[in-house]
Every structure is written in C-alpha cells, then in structure tokens.
Design a protein around this nucleic acid. Structure first.
Lengths: 235, 235
DNA sequence: TACGGAATGTTGGCATACCATCTTCCGGTC
DNA sequence: GACCGGAAGATGGTATGCCAACATTCCGTA
C-alpha cells in the first residue's frame, strides 16, 4: 500500500508524452493569467502555438476540463473557466477544512524526518517573503503546504487542494502579493509551523483557519475590485 | 452569478457528443464493477465494444483519468484505478468533513422550498430501503445528499464528493448492501434529516459524522475481506 | 438603399492512418 | 534440447483528413 508515500515530494515525474507536456503548458498559461478567464481555447490556434497536433491538444483540454480549469461551452468549444465570488468562497471554505485537518494530523504524526522537511520549507518560505519574485513566494507557499499534507498522509486531499488552487490561482497570486498579506502572512505561517512543531493539533488547525479566513477576506476585496474593473472595461 | 443555482437538480444535460456518452458508459462500467479494479482499458477493444473511434475513447479516458477513476501506467496504458484501504480511509475522511459542513449549512439555510425537496428525498430514501434493488437505494442516497449540498450552496464540494464516491463506488455499494447498515443506516439518515428540519447545524453535522464514521468502519471490514479474497484467488 | 441568400471561412466532432515500442513466439543454430 | 535472434502482433502516441454546424461576408435583387 501507498508505495508512493512520498512521491509528491520528488521532482514530479518528468513528463514524457507530448500530451502531458501540453497539459502542463496549458495549465501554466491559464494559471499565470496569460490565458485569462473566459478566453477561448481554439484548437487550431493552440496547435500552432504549441507545435503539436490537434489530438494532443484535444486530449489535454479534456483533462483540464475534468480538472475544472477549462469549461466547454456547447457549440462553442472550450474556454478558460470563469470564477465568481460565490465559487471562490466555496473553494476557500473547502480549502479551510481540508488544510486545517491536514495541519492537525501533521502535528499528530510529526516525526524527525518530517520535522526537518517542514523546517526546510519554512526557511525557504521566509526567504521567499524577502524575494521580489511572486513566483518564488507562490512556489514556497505551495511547498510548505505540501509538506503538511504529505506528512499528515492526506495525499488525496492534497490533490484536491492543488486543483482548487488552480481554479483560484490568479486570486491567490493577488492575495500573496498584497502588502498586508506580506506582513501578516509570514507571521501566520510561522504560527502554523510553531503549532505543528509543538505537536498541538488543535492549535495547528486553528492557526490554519485564521490564516485562510484572512486570505479569503483579502481575496473577496480583490475579486470585487477586479470585477468592477471588468465591468468598467466592458468585459 | 451562479446562474446554475439548481442545475444539478435537473435531469443532467442530455449528452450530445459521442465523447460525453463514452465517458458516461465507461464510468458506469467501472462503477458497476463490470470493469474491475486494475482492469486494462485497451483502446482498440473499447473501440469495438462502444462502436466509436479511438479519438473518442482516448478523450474519454483522459477525462476519467483526471477524475481519478482511471490510472495511466507508463508504457502500459490506462487501467481502472485501484483502491487500497489507505486511499479509502482518506476519501471517507474528506467526505466526512465536506458532508458535515454541507449538512450544517443546509440546516442554516433551509427554506420552505428546500424543506419540501429534502422531505421528498427522505421519503424516497425510506421507500428505497424497502426495495430489493441496490441501484434504487444507491440513487436515493445520492439524491438525499444532493439536496443537502445544493441547499447549502456547496456546489463545488458536491462535485468533489461525487468524484470521490466514484472512486469508492464498489465499497459504497457493498456498504449500502450490508444488512447492519440496512437497519441502522435508515435510522441515521432519519436523524440527519431531523436535525436539518430542526435547523440545528451542530446536531446535523454531528449526525453526519456518526453516519459516515460507521460507514467507514463497515467499509474497512468489507475491504479487508475483499482483499483477502483477492489474495486467495491470486489476483 | 435595404434585405435576403448564397458562398466562404471558422471551428469542433469524429474517424483513420502511421509510427515506435514492447511483447511474444517461432525457428535456427550450437 | 536449450538458447538466442528476428519477425510478427499488440498497443499506445501522434498526426492528418473529412464533415457538419455555425458565423461571416458579399453580391444581387427589389
């Protein structure tokens, strides 16, 4: 069982097929905002852009469709999934529950090896907060949570959270970039880590809940501002 | 926003493309156990069985792969996803958290219309418990939860739970069929409904937790028995 | 000038063809 | 008889071709 216990800690299976590569490229393009919400994914255009055949593109789109990153409009084909505040709220709520549970179990199951992993992830996170590159902070945050989920043995929950994060990636990037967040985020992350190091499940869960509640509030403001911008710009 | 507020209550978008049809057929075949765990999904064989081209089959497989119902083995192609107790445990744990949250919010948000829906679903569930057809009970149970999730506004959580249910469908069928379950299951469902009708979120959440904890225990026993059978039969 | 329709282009759905790799099996040689 | 090598089959990966539906444009007629 679980012969992939720490599989997700590793370098993530170098993609071999064009299809896997295409999925990654498209996902990156969507999550980075290069393909904005509602953007039409015209197959033949993507063929030119990625330099692969339509078969590959279409299969990649099917995958991303099931993942929730792409929606199919009947008679119009695939578009980048849209996000309104109701959906975002639901996603933050699910994340809150799954991440709190993971942090609590992580605190319970912490062993020497996991402690070292978490320590390293926390250190990297601290450095990332000093960095100017949003991507670095994004990656470090992801890594921090990954250690928590994997240590807790919540592999499936981690997959779910990663997918949900994909759907709110732009919101998440904005949230992480927010200056308020910059200050308090680091402190909150620190508190999560401390509770886990102290092996206090309740406090770890509570720390995550506070952290994510704040994140959701910031996201709410940002999304509403963004929506107003969209309306003003007529899109 | 949420212009599909009650979309999932309806008859579910009559599939138009062969691909959607193929996804449904394959999913049904897997969930019913006709394609058992680990079964190789050979594309050209499926072409003959479903009477469509490989393009359609392959795209359907991509979708089910992202859904977690199918796994791709490098250099061997797709197989029906396998399930060990560690994965099943994780899935039950996630379901527990999401369903408890949905029941609580459902209790909070219950209005006249939702009350009627839930009442109808409960009635159908009671009749299903008297039925001999496992499928009827399965469908009625699904419908009961669907009303809870939709009323709570937890549409995304409902999608996630449905997917997770797909991955443990055989376990779930066994659990529902278990005679112990037959007796206590109905009582527990009744308690969940009563707590929601009383608009008592805490009690509703607790009732769901008890219900699912029991279900997970039954599933645990069944899965371990099944695994022993598998070993005995050399597969 | 305005309206209708036909021609053309765009695009997704579906089918098929080709190729590389891996497996299997058969035959020949030692 | 055993072992090795190659041919044939099986199978997934990829590319391409065809078609129907829909949108767009342009021309002809009233």
């Amino acid at each position: 069982m679980t012969n992939e216990q720490h599989a997700s800690l590793r370098i993530e299976h170098v993609p071999q097929t064009l299809r896997e590569l295409a999925v990654e490229r498209l996902r990156a393009a969507i999550m980075s905002g290069r393909f904005p919400s509602g953007y039409r994914l015209v197959e033949r255009t993507l063929v030119d852009q990625l330099g692969v055949s339509r078969s590959v593109i279409r299969e990649a789109i099917r995958y991303l469709e099931a993942e929730g990153l792409v929606e199919i409009q009947p008679r119009q084909g695939p578009i980048v999934a849209t996000l309104d505040w109701d959906k975002a709220r639901q996603i933050y709520d699910i994340r809150l529950r799954l991440e709190a549970a993971a942090a609590a179990d992580c605190a319970r199951l912490l062993d020497t090896s996991a402690r070292a992993d978490l320590q390293a992830a926390l250190q990297r996170l601290k450095e990332a907060f000093l960095s100017d590159d949003p991507q670095v902070l994004y990656d470090a945050t992801t890594r921090f949570y990954e250690v928590i989920f994997v240590t807790a043995g919540h592999h499936i929950a981690w997959e779910i959270v990663q997918r949900l994060n994909g759907r709110i990636s732009r919101l998440r990037a904005l949230t992480l970039a927010s200056t308020d967040r910059h200050v308090s985020g680091q402190a909150r992350m620190q508190r999560i880590a401390e509770a886990i190091f102290a092996q206090d499940p309740d406090r770890a869960g509570e720390a995550v809940r506070e952290h994510l509640t704040e994140a959701a509030e910031i996201a709410s403001k940002l999304l509403h501002v963004a929506n107003k911008d969209d309306q003003r710009m007529g899109q």
